[in-house]
Amino acid sequence: MASDKSDPLRKYVYRGDPLAEPPPPELSAIFTRHRGAPDALITVLEDIQRQYGYLGQNHLQYLARQLNFPLARVYGVVTFYNLFRLDPPGKHQIRVCRGTACHVNHSAAILSHLENALGIGVDETTPDGEFTLQTVACVGACSLAPVLVVDEHTYGRMTPDAAWRTLTALDEREAAA
């Protein structure tokens, strides 16, 4: 899909009407992969979210129809699990670990520093669409607590300042590129 610089979220959005027009090939590919499996629902949701970054309303409608489930059941599953999100994330997903090892190594201070510096709360996205701030229960790198995860990268032995520097370095790297 063409990347539109003015709208960083654009690439995630499948705007088609699921019931009227054929779905984009990447979406139907997910279904082809799992159709017939009795336990497909959660796996399909995970794959859709991997593809688009979130679960849009039309994705869910399309899915319900394809798997022959009531939409309410799909929605019930989506809202039960922490992993799923119903709105598009920012360009970078920041996750502060709030697991026990990180907690006793004062990860709360990192979280509140990032909240203040970004001007958003947990599960919110900055107005420019750059950052989404989240917490995570533990990423298993507890020996390096406190831990910060930015997109796919895990950073250990963080402090509030180091966490903020990690984010600003991300911005600078992109500005240079």
């Binding site: 697991g99 026990t100 090892a101 990180c102 907690h103 229960a137 533990c138 298993g140 790198a141 507890c142």
Partner: peptide, 12 residues
């Protein structure tokens, strides 16, 4: 599932 926060035996 290793749900206990602060545990990483299974991951390792």
């Amino acid at each position: 599932d290793e749900g206990d926060p602060g545990a990483f035996m299974d991951r390792t």
